[in-house]
Design a protein around this nucleic acid. Structure first.
Length: 580
DNA sequence: GCCGTTTTCGGCCCGACTGTTTTCAGTCG
């Protein structure tokens, strides 16, 4: 059974147990196990086979047995029985704001409600308000919640939310009443998809800030407004395509700001680890307002001081996912993460020779203006006809044009590359003599996504081992919130890349962000060199490399782990070395 | 259900808010 399926089942078990009214700590054990498996940077089947499963934190004898059964037999009778007791529709009811497992169970037990349609109808008939523990207000909130799900429902990509969230922050920052302001939540941690926008402000005068907030561009509805918190609905969709998400603004006193900032940045799991540790080690209680001991209260001026007060070095927000960062901070071993300013150029970009919008000259000029030392062009190869893939003949012409262009530049260089298709059998889309004419080759899968995991893994590994291949493009082909990647054993691919010295791309298109951050960590551990590429199809898209920086930082990468932090001379030298 | 250089049993992060309550359970982040 696939890792993603195991994760889904563990989460589902957690919810089923919750609805059944199980002990919350037992429930959490299943959610924790799901998260641990999800963030595993190796193949789950390998971990099971090698016996490492039971050594993972939060997986004891019971969970080890259940997960092993799932992975090896593809099913778990205990889970099947559990599932029979509880209708699937209750899961959709849990998405309604204000409804948790207890209320959902009551609705099911008392009124036989087991899906959203029945829930809506019962509310409209006034039946829900009569239930014990419910009331008219709850009933109204449920109806609003159902409507909100209909309007919003899903997560959005970071590129949809970040620009608008930042513009809100910048507008509020102009106000004299605002002392400090930061984006919080998953946006500050730069997760690839987000559910809502969280903004934190410190001020002695909240009212004018709240008033201004609800009138800012993008705000389409005010859900609630108070002295400490205001909630609105934000439209983050492209013009003409409404896409709504929730946005919360919180205002605290400046003294509370560092505590609140850490609290609302999360992740929840990171906070739990931080708080448990502070409790165990120092008997200190961390909350969103303070750090309290038996007699003392610790004051800090900013987040860095907060970590310091707990004997930890600063942990950047992107690392706060409870994947070992607190241990690292305790030992003073938090890596110096890569920053956007470390990037000297990018390699995987398209021009109007294939499916890009801009000309070669325009792309080069844009890269120069951005302060890059070099730009790599990697138009599509011949078999990708839908993207105007380049015949061998056209490759020669483009290369001649690049050579001519390079004569005009001083301290800037355009590298001749290709985004060459990996054919279904793992061979490349150009013959060796053509591949040899490029400075570098990005190898990507664009077809036959339906191959078995074994076929796909063998196919990609063959490409990775091809001496002409410099780097592997978008390793799984996933499209966030749209399509899962093809099935591939990334551990085997990364090991092959480590062996052959082939680089692996972090494709910075916000719809891809592939290689993902979890496998970035693994790649780093294996010594694989990564490379951040915007996969730009226009001059404006060159800036997308910044989303790749976010992934790299979430993956604990330092400048030395990323090839395009190297200078033009170093890159030239490396490409020349690989030609020998 | 997990976990332990003080523990193999008794803990498990913390506080706010809401609505339904006469003191608190459920939900949320």
């Amino acid at each position: 059974m696939l890792k993603q399926q195991v994760v889904a089942i563990l989460n589902e078990i957690g919810t089923l147990l919750e609805i059944q009214g199980e002990n919350m700590f037992k429930v959490r054990a299943y959610y924790n196990a799901a998260r641990t498996i999800e963030q595993l940077d190796k193949e789950l089947s390998d971990v099971v086979a090698s016996g490492e499963l039971g050594e993972l934190r939060g997986i004891g004898d019971t969970l080890r047995e259940k997960i092993t059964t799932l992975v090896t037999t593809g099913q778990l009778p205990w889970y099947e029985d559990l599932k029979k007791k509880i209708p699937q529709g209750l899961f959709s009811m849990l998405r309604v704001a204000g409804l948790g497992p207890k209320k959902v169970k009551a609705l099911y037990d008392e009124l036989g409600i087991d899906d959203l349609d029945k829930l809506k109808a019962a509310c409209e008939r006034g039946e829900v308000a009569k239930l014990k523990g419910f009331g008219v207000k709850t009933q109204e909130k449920i109806l609003e919640g159902i409507e909100f799900i209909r309007l919003t429902g899903s997560r959005v990509r970071i590129d949809q939310a970040l620009p608008i969230a930042m513009s809100l922050v910048e507008e509020l920052r102009k106000m004299p009443e605002v002392q400090r302001i930061e984006l919080c939540g998953s946006l500050r941690r730069r997760r690839e998809t987000i559910k809502d926008v969280d903004i934190l402000v410190s001020s002695a005068k909240p009212e004018p800030i709240m008033e201004r907030f609800v009138k800012l561009p993008g705000v389409v509805q005010v859900i609630g407004t108070g002295e400490t918190k205001t909630s609105v609905v934000l439209d983050v969709g492209a013009p003409g395509r409404q896409q709504l998400i929730n946005a919360d603004l919180r205002v605290v006193s400046d003294e509370h700001f560092p505590f609140a900032l850490h609290h609302f940045t999360g992740s929840k799991e990171h906070n739990i680890t931080m708080r448990s540790r502070a409790q165990d080690k120092f008997g200190l209680k961390i909350s969103e307002y303070s750090i309290e001991g038996d007699s003392k209260s610790i004051k800090v001026k900013d987040e860095a001081a907060l970590f310091k007060a707990l004997g930890l070095s600063y942990i950047p927000p992107e690392m706060r996912e409870d994947t070992g960062e607190v241990d690292l901070a305790e030992k003073g071993q938090v890596p110096t993460l890569i920053e956007a300013s470390d990037i000297k150029g990018v390699f995987h970009n398209h021009t109007n020779w294939s499916d890009g919008k801009a000309t070669l000259e325009e792309m080069a000029e844009a890269a120069r203006t951005m302060g890059f030392q070099y730009l790599g062009i990697g138009d599509h190869s011949q078999s990708l006809t839908v993207a105007n893939g380049m015949s061998v003949e056209r490759v020669k012409k483009q290369q001649a044009q690049i050579d001519a262009l390079n004569k005009k530049f001083k301290n800037f260089h355009v590298f001749k590359g290709s985004e060459c298709d990996i054919l279904p059998d793992g061979s490349m889309d150009y013959p060796d003599d053509v591949l040899a004419t490029f400075d570098y080759v990005v190898a990507s899968v664009h077809s036959h996504f339906g191959q078995t995991k074994e076929e796909m893994t063998a196919r990609i590994i063959k490409a990775v081992r091809n001496p002409h291949v410099t780097m592997l493009g978008h390793a799984t082909g996933r499209l966030l919130l749209m399509r899962d990647g093809y099935q591939v054993d990334l551990e085997a691919v990364l090991q092959a890349a480590a062996q052959s010295g082939t680089m692996v791309e972090i494709n910075a298109q916000p719809s891809r962000l592939d290689l993902d951050w979890i496998h970035c960590k693994r790649a780093k551990a294996l010594g694989v060199m990564l490379v951040i590429n915007p996969d730009a199809h226009s001059t404006g898209e060159l800036f997308l490399f910044r989303y790749g920086i976010d992934v790299a930082r979430r993956g604990w990468l330092e400048p030395g782990n990323v090839f395009n932090t190297r200078s033009l001379e170093e890159v030239k030298k490396e490409f020349a070395r690989r030609k020998k």
